[in-house]
């Protein structure tokens, strides 16, 4: 899987969380690569392990949570073995994160300006006025008018959309090479969402950053990603270039997701949408075989065993299923299942 020139490489990352009823195998054996300037979207439904994955990369998981990986490296730095101090010097400097709820990561007691400036002076030596100028510059870049006067405002004085822009500016203060955005627009209006995503793409191009964008919205994925990783119950079930995944979704779950959403221009108005019956299985205790088998129309006994990785037609992308074509040729409508 490892590719030359990747700035981020993840191989066989697993995350275990101790709970009262046993170990929760929240993330299992996932892997991906990311090149500079590239955008990877991790898409999956709530609880699939997206946020845990990003927190693991940033070294922000609590000590009770066990992270294992064959490899997790950022520009040659081993993130598994990196100490607390080394992670702290990377975070916010060379790799930054934008969280879903900006209020949790902005300190209500300090002004926007103070927080932006600190994000830089923490890592970069130099006069405070430089940091201040960069902060104003970035606030303007992220589309905040009268940036100077915003510097002296407190987080609660800004709307959700503005706070999210401030978070983006803060993540960019040190000119990171990797940015991880966890559902950065989920809580926002569609109009603001479009503006923020455009902004992220523009800034990414301007600064040549690599970006991991976490979302549950397939529309966002299609418009923003170069590479897609589809996550289900802690596993990556399908990965590959965006155009290929949408043109030729091979895993039954990926195809199911695409059928669930009404697609203007494609789905006939008022018709029934596709569904994925059933619920996500418990990941506590012994978890083996294909996690999707409790909801898959094609599941059979061997889906309980180890699932091989398959390559999609045209060798373009890979997915995990017992069938070499992921049963793509078969009809999965509810009628067929009944």
């Amino acid at each position: 899987m490892t590719q030359d020139g990747a700035i981020l490489t993840v191989e066989n990352l697993s995350i275990d969380i101790p709970t009262e009823t046993g170990t929760l195998h929240a993330v299992r054996n996932i892997g991906f690569d990311l090149k500079p300037g590239e955008t990877l979207c991790i898409v999956g439904e709530s609880g699939s392990g997206k946020s845990l994955t990003s927190l693991a990369l940033m070294g922000l998981l609590g000590s009770s949570i066990k992270t294992k990986a064959n490899r997790m490296s950022f520009d040659g730095i081993d993130l598994i073995r990196a100490g607390k101090r080394q992670m702290r010097s990377l975070r916010g400097a060379r790799m930054s994160m934008i969280f879903q709820e900006p209020m949790t990561s902005l300190n209500p007691a300090f002004t926007i300006g103070d927080q932006l400036i600190e994000a830089m002076t923490l890592h970069v030596k130099g006069p405070k006025s430089d940091a201040r100028n960069r902060a104003i510059d970035l606030l303007q870049k992220v589309g905040i008018t009268s940036a100077e006067s915003r510097m002296s405002q407190y987080p609660h004085q800004l709307s959700g959309g503005l706070r999210q822009r401030v978070m983006i500016a803060m993540a960019l203060m040190c000119g990171p090479e990797l940015i991880i955005a966890d559902e950065p627009t989920t809580a926002l209006d569609v109009t603001i969402q479009a503006q923020i995503l455009r902004l992220l793409k523009d800034l990414q191009q301007e600064f040549g950053m690599a970006m991991i964008l976490i979302t549950h919205d397939l529309g966002v994925v299609a418009r923003v990603a170069d590479q897609v990783a589809v996550m289900y119950a802690g596993e990556l079930v399908e990965t590959g270039p965006t155009a290929e995944i949408f043109a030729c979704p091979s895993h039954p779950y990926t195809r199911g997701l695409l059928r669930c959403i009404p697609q203007p221009g494609k789905t006939e108005r008022g018709t029934r949408l596709g569904t994925i019956p059933g619920i996500v299985p418990s990941l506590v205790g012994d978890v083996s075989g294909c996690a999707f088998r409790t909801r898959c129309a094609h599941a059979r006994d061997i889906c309980r065993s180890d699932i091989p990785e398959q390559t999609a037609p045209g060798e373009t992308h890979s997915f995990r299923c017992i069938a070499p074509d992921g049963f793509a040729g078969m009809d999965e409508t509810e009628e067929a299942r009944a």
Binding site: V190, R198, V221, A222, R223
Partner: peptide, 17 residues
């Protein structure tokens, strides 16, 4: 508003509203 809807079409970019 309509322009800002992100249909899952990988051939399209994020629109400028």
């Amino acid at each position: 508003l309509l322009k800002s809807v992100l249909t899952p079409d990988p051939a399209m970019e994020v629109p400028d509203t």
